[in-house]
Amino acid sequence: MTDPDSRWLVPVADVPRHELVPRWWERDGSGAWELRDGPSDPEAWAEAAYADRSLVTRVGPLHADQAEPGDRPEGRPTSSATLPSLVVRMLRHGRLGDGLSLLDLGTGAGGLAAYACHRLGDACVTSLDIDPYLVSAAGERLAGMGFHPTLITADATKEVPGTYDRIVSTVAFPPGRGLQPVLRALEFGGRIATTLARTSFIVTGWKDRHGDVVGRVEREWAGFMATRSGEDYPPALDDLFALAREADGEQTRTGRYPVVDVGNAWELRSMLEVTVPGIESDYETSGRQRTAYLAHPDGSWARASAERTDPPEVHQSGPQRLWDALERIRHRLNAEGSLPLYGAHVRITPDGVVHLSRGKWRASMGAR
Rank of each mutant, 00 (worst) to 15 (best):
184 R>K: 15
200 S>V: 00
191 R>I: 13
187 E>H: 14
207 K>Y: 08
230 G>H: 12
163 T>H: 12
234 P>C: 09
165 D>C: 10
156 A>C: 11
210 H>M: 07
155 D>F: 04
196 L>H: 03
213 V>M: 03
167 I>T: 08
157 T>H: 08
171 V>K: 01
177 R>M: 04
156 A>L: 05
222 A>C: 10
160 V>G: 09
167 I>Y: 09
203 V>P: 07
172 A>H: 04
216 R>P: 00
186 L>D: 09
195 T>V: 05
161 P>D: 07
172 A>Q: 07
215 G>V: 04
209 R>L: 13
223 G>S: 13
214 V>Q: 11
182 V>F: 02
190 G>N: 05
172 A>D: 07
159 E>Q: 12
209 R>I: 11
232 D>R: 13
217 V>K: 02
184 R>Q: 15
204 T>A: 03
197 A>W: 06
167 I>E: 11
206 W>A: 13
234 P>S: 09
172 A>S: 14
164 Y>E: 04
166 R>Q: 10
205 G>Y: 02
199 T>H: 08
182 V>P: 03
196 L>D: 01
192 I>D: 08
181 P>N: 07
179 L>Q: 02
202 I>T: 13
189 G>S: 13
179 L>Y: 02
194 T>V: 14
211 G>C: 07
195 T>C: 15
168 V>T: 14
231 E>Y: 04
187 E>W: 00
177 R>F: 00
203 V>Y: 02
227 T>Q: 10
162 G>P: 09
209 R>C: 11
209 R>E: 15
217 V>S: 03
179 L>W: 03
154 A>R: 09
164 Y>T: 07
207 K>T: 04
202 I>F: 03
197 A>K: 10
224 F>L: 06
197 A>Y: 04
203 V>K: 04
179 L>M: 08
223 G>N: 10
230 G>Y: 02
172 A>V: 06
176 G>F: 07
196 L>R: 02
203 V>M: 11
228 R>N: 00
227 T>D: 01
180 Q>W: 01
167 I>R: 11
198 R>L: 10
214 V>K: 09
203 V>A: 14
181 P>A: 08
183 L>P: 07
157 T>N: 09
194 T>S: 13
193 A>M: 05
173 F>N: 00
232 D>L: 01
224 F>A: 01
223 G>Y: 05
220 E>M: 10
220 E>T: 14
220 E>Y: 05
188 F>P: 15
170 T>W: 12
233 Y>A: 05
167 I>K: 08
206 W>H: 13
212 D>C: 15
191 R>L: 13
177 R>E: 15
207 K>H: 10
160 V>A: 10
177 R>L: 06
222 A>Y: 00
177 R>Y: 00
230 G>N: 06
161 P>A: 08
211 G>A: 06
200 S>C: 08
203 V>H: 01
221 W>S: 13
203 V>W: 04
193 A>C: 05
216 R>S: 14
219 R>A: 08
188 F>C: 11
219 R>N: 09
201 F>E: 14
230 G>R: 12
208 D>M: 11
209 R>Y: 12
192 I>K: 04
159 E>W: 06
154 A>L: 06
201 F>G: 01
195 T>F: 02
198 R>I: 00
223 G>F: 10
161 P>L: 08
205 G>L: 03
156 A>V: 15
211 G>F: 05
